[in-house]
Write a protein that binds this DNA or RNA. Sequence first.
DNA 1: CCTACCGATCGGTAGG
DNA 2: CCTACCGATCGGTAGG
Lengths: 192, 192
Amino acid sequence: MSKQAGSEDGVRSRRDEILAVAAQLFARKGYRGTSMRDIGEASGVLGGSLYHHIKSKDALFVELHNGALDAAEARIVAAVAAAGDPWDRLEAACVALLDVQLAPDSLTMPMMNDFREVPDDVRAQLVARRDRFEGLFRAIVADLPLPAGIDRSVYRNLLLSQLNAAADWFRPGRLSPREIAVQVARIFRHEG
Amino acid sequence: MSKQAGSEDGVRSRRDEILAVAAQLFARKGYRGTSMRDIGEASGVLGGSLYHHIKSKDALFVELHNGALDAAEARIVAAVAAAGDPWDRLEAACVALLDVQLAPDSLTMPMMNDFREVPDDVRAQLVARRDRFEGLFRAIVADLPLPAGIDRSVYRNLLLSQLNAAADWFRPGRLSPREIAVQVARIFRHEG
DNA sequence: CCTACCGATCGGTAGG
DNA sequence: CCTACCGATCGGTAGG
C-alpha cells in the first residue's frame, strides 16, 4: 500500500524518483498548486506519461501523505520507547516529529494541513490516517501529570497544530529543529 | 482601502453582501477551491457579473484578508488596553483573537493560512499585512516575565500558529472559544 | 515515454 | 446584471 523504499528493479526506482519529486512540489505549492504537468516537468517527462506509474493525482497524494505519516510514526514510536518518564517522552516525540517536518530535504509532510484544498473523498482518507497518527499523541498526553486546570484535549490539539505549523515559520540558520522541539516541550511542561 | 461596513447607498450594501459571501467561501474552501462562479452563484448572479463590483479575484482576496486583520487587530488592542498585568494582557489577546476566529458566522480569517495557495504577488501583500498584525503579539510577548530558558521568538510563533490553527480542530458544543483561549493562556503561562 | 487530444473549468472581458 | 465568449490550464486517455 505504501512501500516507500526498495530498489529491486528499474521500474521501482523510477517510480520512487517521481514520488519524491511530487512530494516536494506538493509540500511547496500545495495540492491544487501542483499540476501533473509540473510533476512531469520536474521528473523530465510529460504530464501524461506519469500515468504509467500512478493511477491518479488523488491516489498519488494519498500515498505520499500516508507514507509520510508511516515514517514519522515509526520514528516517534522509537524515540518515545527510548525515553524515561512522561515528560521525557513528550520531548522525544516533539524532537522526532520536528526533525522529520523541518529536515531541509524533507519530501515529507508539510502537506498535512492541505485538507481544505483536496477533493472530499481524498480528505476522508487523509483524515482517517491522521486520526490514527494523532492517537500516538493522545497516549503520550494521557500519561502526563498535568495540573487539574488544563484540558488534555485542548492541550493535545494545540501541541499537534503547532508542530504541524512549524514548517510555515521555520527558517534554517537560527535555532535547529531539535532546539525548537526542546522549546516546545519546555513551554508545554507544567508539573501538576 | 478596507472599509467593511457602511450603508449609505444600494451599491455599497450590494458590494458588502458579495464580500461577506466571498469571505465565507474562501474560509471554507480556500482560495483556489473557490471560483468566481461559486461566489456568483452564492450571491445570486453569474460569475462574470461580479466584476462590476470588484477588480479581480486577487484584489478581492487581499481586501478581505486585510479587512479581517484590521477588525481583529482593533478588538485585540481594545482588549489588551483594558487588562492589567502582562499575563492578563496575554489572556485578553487570546480571548479576543479566538473569539473572532471561532465565531460561528465569522466571515473572517481562517484564510490567514492560505499563503501557499495564492499567487506570488498576492502572497507578498498578505505577508506584509500579517507581519504588522504579528507585531501586536511581539509587544505583548516582550512584556512577559518569561523564564530565561524560553526563546521569545519561538514562543510567539507557537502562540500565533496555534491561535490561527484553532479553527481547524474547533468544534462547537464542547469548550467555548473563550474557554479555549483561557486554556491557551494557561499553557503558555510560565512565571520567570 | 511521446503525440495528440478530450471535456471541463478557470479568471476575465466586450458589448449591451 | 446577462449573453456569449476568450485563451489558458487542468486531470486524464488512446494509441502507439
